[in-house]
Design a protein around this nucleic acid. Structure first.
Length: 484
RNA sequence: GAGCCAUUAGCUCAGUCGGUAGAGCACCGGACUUUUAAUCCGGGUGUCCCGCGUUCGAGUCGCGGAUGGCUCACCA
């Protein structure tokens, strides 16, 4: 323990010795600091009771100033020895930055026009035993900011703001869907067969049943079972878990919304996507014109739509139309792409797209008509069964969402699963597993439907101009490390 | 998983050529009854991320490791 902490422990003991409970209980406030600032004229010279954390202090001998911050703002405290008495004044001056206190006093304005509270009584509510980072530079060390987010939140107000906006985004999303008659549901996160995405799952174990379970990688197959069951418009907001690498755009657990609408198709879901992004931006930012890094982005609908094959033709200057698997692989090699030896035509197209097209998609753009091999849950296009009625909107080069006309043909679905199983057998551990019960559900009849999944963390990154997913996660995943 | 970079006081950061470890803020003591990055006087509080090595001598050089950041790979 360092000297600074020893000094605070000593002060803690002094409080206890003088009969003061350093960790007080319920404290009745009459106002928040923000009320005093917003309604100063009305409250001037009236008594208020407020509470919060001391963030700075300026002592001047027989008078002292300090700043008190609560959940909604900050206000200056002013204490004079001739108004509170020697004992209370000494107690006040012994408080540390970081201590949580309750204050009774009157509202006034100082000579320098600072809105303040003239303290009459101070109650210690929580003695702080660790020093806070300095007020001017705050906490910069990103590792400490993520590991000790509570400290980051105390000293960096702009960080707090990001998480307020995150909450507003999710609220706006929920309102948007509920207004349109979607039903919010919850489906299992502990899965016997993880499905709905190509991803490696986390494995866990149920002791009483003595069986391994998987953390879900997507709620998709459950939500479509609900369409079978007769719910026509459903959505779920929740965590997905994928046992993959960590990066500025990937966290092992991330939040997504999945939306399903019976009797709709990919076209309807694209319209819903555009409208949803624009509505949320308007509600949270007040405009559909936003800035991300150096880019000015317009989220106003409609967004352009480009079939994947077209996009590759346009940006890579390569036409893959009608090529066989072998021809496609050959072309990939010529262009210097690294592909798996047995890569399908669809996988090659996907690779061309990732390399040559994706980095150019700054403004919102729907990429459509993904190959059937990489879209095992999407309905085939009527006039070209090699591609699907699928779309992915890209903004600032990121895939923001994924949607399609849902495959509701149980026989085709079973074949798609079998083909996935083959890929799995040949070493692709991200390929889908066979889900017999899902096939069974489809056999009862699922209405044609449009589906959409949106990565909420990326949406929040976009709308808060955050360069890393860790900046929009309160507690991003870190390797464990014990701080001193 | 690979490459590059970083790690020095509670925080933000300097540290030259390898020669006794520095600043600001915070903190402690003193002065000060309207300050607001208060001011003035005095005080440096340290496992220089860890280990091994080179050297008369390592914060500094070499090797290994830890953690983090960025890029790549995988993915959303």
């Amino acid at each position: 323990m360092n000297e600074l902490m020893e000094i605070r422990r000593k002060k803690l003991q002094d409080l206890i010795d003088s009969g003061i409970d350093p960790y007080g209980g319920k404290f009745e406030r009459t106002h928040h600091t923000k009320d005093i600032i917003d309604r100063f004229e009305e409250l001037e010279e009236t008594e208020v009771v407020i509470a919060g954390r001391l963030l700075s202090s300026r002592t001047h001998g027989k008078a002292s100033f300090a700043d008190l911050e609560d959940g909604k703002g900050r206000i200056q405290l002013y204490v004079r020895v001739d108004q509170v008495g020697e004992a209370a004044y000494e107690l006040f001056n012994k408080l540390d930055i970081g201590d949580i206190v309750g204050v009774r006093g009157t509202v006034f304005r100082t000579k320098r026009q600072e809105l303040s509270v003239r303290v009459k009584e101070v109650t210690v509510l929580a003695k702080s035993l660790r020093p806070l980072p300095e007020k001017w530079h705050g906490l910069k060390d990103v590792e400490l900011r993520y590991r000790q987010r509570y400290v980051d939140l105390i000293v960096n107000p702009e960080v707090r703001e990001v998480f307020v906006i995150r909450s507003q985004i999710i609220q706006a999303l929920r309102e948007f869907l509920i207004e349109r008659d979607f039903l919010e549901v919850e489906t299992p996160m502990l899965n016997v067969i993880p499905g709905g995405a190509n991803a490696r799952p986390f494995v866990t174990h149920h002791n009483a049943l003595d069986m391994d379970l998987y953390m879900r990688i997507a709620p998709e197959l459950y939500l479509k079972r609900l369409l079978v069951g007769g719910f026509e418009k459903v959505f779920e907001i929740g965590k997905n878990f994928r046992n993959e690498g960590i990066s500025t755009k990937h966290n092992p657990e991330f939040t997504a919304v999945e939306i399903y609408q019976a009797y709709a198709d990919a076209e309807d879901m694209m319209k819903l996507t555009e409208e949803l992004f624009a509505t949320i931006a308007l509600k949270v930012k007040g405009t559909t014109e936003i800035e991300y890094g150096p880019h000015k982005i317009s989220l106003a609908p409609p967004w352009p739509r480009i079939p994947m094959l077209e996009a590759v033709k346009q940006y890579a200057g390569v036409d893959l139309t009608g090529l066989s698997d072998e021809e496609a692989r050959q072309l990939a090699k010529e262009k210097g792409l690294t592909i798996k030896p047995n890569a399908s035509y669809g996988a090659v197209l996907d690779e061309f797209f990732d390399t040559f097209v994706e980095p150019n998609l700054i403004q919102p753009t729907f990429i459509t008509e993904h190959p059937v091999e990489v879209s095992p849950l999407a309905k085939r296009k009527k006039d070209n069964p090699q591609v699907t009625e699928r779309f992915e909107p890209f903004i600032v080069t990121w895939e923001m969402a994924n949607g399609f006309s849902e495959l509701n043909d149980p026989i085709d679905q079973e074949q798609r699963f079998r083909s996935q199983m083959e890929q799995r057998a040949s070493g692709d551990d991200e390929a889908h597993m066979m889900d017999e019960d899902y096939i069974r559900a489809l056999e009862y009849g699922m209405p044609p439907a449009g589906g959409l999944g949106i990565g909420i963390d990326r949406l929040v990154m976009l709308l808060t101009n955050s360069p890393s997913i860790r900046d929009v996660l309160l507690f991003p995943h870190m390797r464990p490390r014990i701080l001193d």
